[in-house]
Every structure is written in structure tokens, then in C-alpha cells.
């Protein structure tokens, strides 16, 4: 099939917008919910400020369920929930619901593991000086793990670009979906190449930008 490049350009712009919309919503969710969830799992862990086996187990269990279920299945299983939250089960906003859930769980794990990198002695020192838990989180845990949190955020964002390709299942659109529909189903190899190249560029750009931010923030 002949490729009409001006049509393709429009399709690409639309697809990029959809990808950005889906990833944007999910990443905001990761920040707003993933960081607190990661902190919560970290602090309820063994020897930590809020040590509590049961709540820690529940937190870890939920995160693991989400992370171990293949995304495509999660997408389908969550359809009723998506309908409830987004008012529709089709389109990029609807696809953002399962994507957000995955990114929250994914990022929470990464947040937890970067918090583990924080020197326990510094936490002990802050406790010894009489710091409240909230202040320890705000002035010790978060700034001390800033580089790790940023790195994790970039990893989450890049993974989301990949996950969002599956959003085509529910008509979510996006560049991954474009590559599959035109490049794969319709044998328009050139379209596939262009989209894949653009995705590579996008991911590379995100990674470089992330590395730059990490370097700038790291004072160690």
C-alpha cells in the first residue's frame, strides 16, 4: 500500500499526543501515589520507624500482584473499574487507568529500593535529635534518595511508553499502537520503521534528560 506521508504526519502527531496523555496521567499518579506507597512499604519494613509485619505484607502483596500480572491481562481485568473511574472503557483516558495502576506499583517498588540506599545511620541521627517522622521523610529520606528517585522515575516513564503500546487493545491509541496497526497489520514497513525510530529517539531523549537531572541533583 502506498504511504501518504502528510496523512502519516497527522497520524503521528495524534499518536504522540495520545502517548503523552497516557504517560502523563500515569506518571502524575506514580508521583502522587507511588512515592507515598513506596515510603509506606519502606517504613513498615523490618527495623524501620513504622515496623509492622502485617501492613508491610499487604502493601508488598498488592504491589506484587500488579507487577506480576501481564499488562495485557490487567488491562482487560480492570475494564469494569476503568468504566467506573473514567466513565468509558475506550480511548487514551480510559487506557490511562490501568497504566496508572501499573506505574504506581512499579514506581513504589523503585522508591522503596532507593530508600533502602539511604544510610540508616542518618535516619538514626535524625531520630536521636528528636525529629518527627514527617520531618525525617521530608528532610532526610527524600533528599538523600533524590538521585535514586529520579532514576526510578525515568525507568518508570520509559517502561510506560512500552506498556502504552498495548493500550491499542482498548482503543487507547498512541505511537506503539500506530506502529502495530499500520506497520504490522497493514504491512506498511516504512511506517513501522519511522514510528519505531521515533520511539527510540523519544526513549533516548528521556534517558539522557534523566541522566542529566540525576547528575545535577547528586551531591554525594
Amino acid at each position: 500500500m502506498e504511504t501518504n506521508y502528510s496523512v502519516l504526519l497527522n497520524d503521528l502527531i495524534k499518536a504522540f499526543n495520545e502517548t503523552f496523555l497516557m504517560c502523563g496521567i500515569s506518571l502524575v499518579a506514580a508521583l502522587v501515589l507511588g512515592i507515598p506507597l513506596g515510603i509506606f512499604i519502606f517504613l513498615t519494613g523490618k527495623g524501620m520507624l513504622w515496623e509492622n509485619k502485617i501492613t508491610n505484607f499487604i502493601g508488598c502483596f498488592i504491589v506484587n500482584i500488579v507487577r506480576s500480572t501481564p499488562f495485557i491481562i490487567l488491562l482487560v481485568v480492570l475494564l469494569p473499574f476503568t468504566q467506573l473511574v473514567a466513565g468509558t472503557a475506550i480511548g487514551p483516558v480510559a487506557a490511562s487507568v490501568p497504566l496508572a495502576i501499573v506505574s504506581v506499583a512499579f514506581y513504589a517498588r523503585l522508591v522503596e529500593s532507593s530508600l533502602h540506599e539511604v544510610d540508616k545511620g542518618v535516619i538514626e541521627a535524625a531520630t536521636a535529635f528528636g525529629a518527627s517522622h514527617l520531618r525525617i521523610i521530608k528532610d532526610v529520606l527524600l533528599p538523600e534518595s533524590r538521585a535514586g528517585l529520579l532514576r526510578g522515575f525515568i525507568i518508570t516513564a520509559i517502561s510506560l511508553v512500552g506498556y502504552s503500546a498495548m493500550a491499542g487493545i482498548v482503543g487507547g491509541g498512541g505511537i506503539g499502537d500506530l506502529a502495530i496497526r499500520f506497520g504490522y497489520y497493514r504491512y506498511q514497513t516504512d511506517v513501522m520503521f519511522i514510528t519505531v525510530a521515533l520511539i527510540i529517539l523519544l526513549v533516548q531523549g528521556m534517558q539522557s534528560f534523566g541522566d542529566y537531572l540525576v547528575k545535577k541533583s547528586d551531591k554525594k
Binding site: D119, G121, V122, E124, A125, A126, T127, A128, F129, G130, D139, V140, P143, E144, R146, K219, K220
Partner: peptide
Amino acid sequence: KLRLNIGMVFQQFNLIRS
């Protein structure tokens, strides 16, 4: 309040690196 009245110095210094 008790802790505010007790300073502590550590072997590994335990300063906030950031």
C-alpha cells in the same frame, strides 16, 4: 523533648549528604 536535650555524635558521622 528529652532528645532535644541530648546531642549525639556517631562513628560514621551520619551527616545528611544532600
